[in-house]
Design a binder for these strands. Structure first.
Lengths: 352, 352
DNA sequence: CTGAAAGCGCTTACAG
DNA sequence: CTGAAAGCGCTTACAG
């Protein structure tokens, strides 16, 4: 039924080896022969069997992507970047969207050991990192997308979150804020941790203070951010600057501040992290540390494919730049290094 | 290097055929022999080669998922459902996240024709539906997730959006709204179309009117919803009920109504569609037609795997129920059939 | 309950 | 520039 390489060979009056050469674009084939073979392949609608190519060549031209959850706000954007980065290479994307532990992880590891994929792209693998190290030691190409978690020691691409945190601190300092509060996110979304390091480092010795009493943990959700601000307010803690490790939480924080009658940015300046969907549409629009999620995914895809195709990898870990998107939850200030305004500030935004 | 079935056979003193039988859980193997073989496989860490199994068995135990874009608000939720539904079956998920046309689609079709996957799950395929029909005619198992687009004639699962629309209409009627406006979404997210049919059908003969002048099209984004309401208001059109074909647009619509000083739900009652992330956190929280995205994905995955494993498919198209989630953008009314309150209404919500 | 052999559809040295 | 042959690592009748 199915057209095979043998059919093409017979029709063209050549051997399977020659057809295979044409298929793989080898240069050492007679022009006329090549043209004839290609014509026959087109006429018959021949498509090589991925399964046979896989077995014979030892490669599937597919990479496995390990993503803890598609529900993390920035994950779809990052995955779309991976898909877009992969598309032109012809590599397929085998998606494993499940938490990095338990039987699901075992299943993933087995499929990887069964050579269903040529390499693995792991997004913030968390608990799966030990498995990945073992697979990597076993010779499997692995690339980790680090969004702020502990460096794994594996080949990685990430974003310069520490710098993003420093920029956030500079913006609050430029706005004259001296009593800072911070809402941290869940362990599964560790971008905030690294960002916080750059943030606190930059604050050191400036007169602005971030007390541990003013740091509260939340779960990444809008409601979580709302609750976190309520905790701060109920504890009667004073703060005029707030750094929130996630835009969804920041949206909730803004809601709580609004309900409490606290003016933003007049009384409290707020900076988020991520620049995901809700950021541009909060009231006021959220100033936030932008992470280039899609670019991160695309860079990771290209880097991994590069390694698979024999490239040595581009040396050390790749670190993409973050940037500060200044919208309406921080007061308009003079130019701040790295500031980037994505939206005209509207007249009704309060000015300090 | 790699442990193969031949190694296991030699170590166990049996033939490859017997090892294969154990591998595939065939019952006709001696208990002791089976135990010995399994022990040896465990000791050696044997994992069957997915590539060899694929070639020999003619199946890859992988399904291809065609998703136009991961940036559609409900897509991550739906995809997570697919992944979760697939997990226990052991099937892999080859993700193709690109618009249904152009060279990317060609690449997808080629990979499908190359038998890289056993079947295809297509989410709202749009322009790719002709390709899918052809593949289906060629014998490929195909399942379409229909979110409101034209029925493709292919095996499908969908949500009962017409019923959801009818519920939305009933809610507005119960609230006494007679001048209705509607904001429709982009062609790539056609859920609203079907929903609108049920909506207008239910309105017919009730005294409530939805004029074509009061229907405006938007792009699915928050800003698009905002702009759409501004268009309606600038045209000086009166409306006391508003049905928006997407929660993100509804969030923008609420923002525009707020800026214009229109009270919600007092002056305008608003119903959204989707029940995606922004819905619960708008001000007031959005009343919306809930679509069970994750369940939709999981049902599709199970149905397709069922077909692949020899099940005949469950008869006609599967249609999951939608429901109305009543929050704060519609006035509290007595029990409405099918109403479902997901959140305690807070005291400060305006009451008509 | 088990084995020998053919076959899945390619790729890859090797030889010419 | 091209072909014959072996091999990738399994599964599947067929025979016993």
């Amino acid at each position: 039924m199915r057209v095979t390489i043998a059919d093409i060979a017979r029709l063209a009056g050549v051997s399977k080896a020659t057809v295979s050469r044409v298929l793989n674009g080898r240069p050492d084939v007679d022009q006329a022969t090549q043209a004839r073979i290609q014509e026959i392949m087109a006429e018959t609608g021949y498509v090589p069997s991925a399964r046979a190519v896989g077995l014979a060549s030892g490669r599937t031209r597919t990479i496995g992507v390990l993503a803890p959850s598609l529900r993390t706000p920035w994950m779809p954007e990052l995955l779309q970047g991976v898909a877009d980065g992969l598309e032109p290479t012809g590599y397929g994307l085998l998606l494993h969207a499940a938490a990095g532990d338990g039987p699901a992880l075992e299943r993933f590891a087995a499929s990887v050991r069964g050579h269903a994929v040529d390499g693995v792209l792991a997004v913030e693998p968390g608990g799966a990192v030990d498995q990945l190290r073992e697979l990597h030691r076993g010779g499997l190409p692995v690339l980790v997308v680090e969004t702020g978690g502990r460096p794994s020691g594996l080949p990685a691409v990430g974003a310069d979150l520490a710098d993003g945190g420093a920029r956030a601190a500079e913006l609050l300092l430029a706005a004259g804020r001296l009593r800072i509060a911070m809402i941290t996110g869940p362990a599964t979304d560790p971008a905030g941790n690294t960002c916080a390091e750059g943030f606190t480092d930059r604050l050191t010795g400036t007169g602005a203070v971030l007390r541990s009493s003013h740091v509260t943990e939340s779960d990444g959700s809008e409601q979580g951010g709302y609750d976190a601000v309520q905790r701060l307010l109920r504890a009667r803690l004073f703060f005029d600057g707030l750094f929130v490790h996630g835009d969804a939480m920041a949206a909730g924080a803004l809601r709580a501040l609004h309900e409490a009658g606290r003016q933003v940015p007049g009384e409290v300046a707020v900076v988020g992290l991520g620049d995901v969907a809700p950021a541009a549409y909060t009231q006021p629009p959220l100033t936030t540390v932008r992470v280039p999620w899609a670019e991160l995914g695309a860079a990771a895809a290209r880097d991994l494919v590069n390694r698979l195709d024999g490239g040595a990898g581009d040396g050390g870990p790749v670190l993409l730049a973050t940037s500060l998107v200044v919208r309406g939850t921080t007061p308009p200030v003079g130019r701040i290094p790295g500031q980037r305004s994505r939206r005209a500030r509207t007249a009704e935004l309060p000015v300090v």
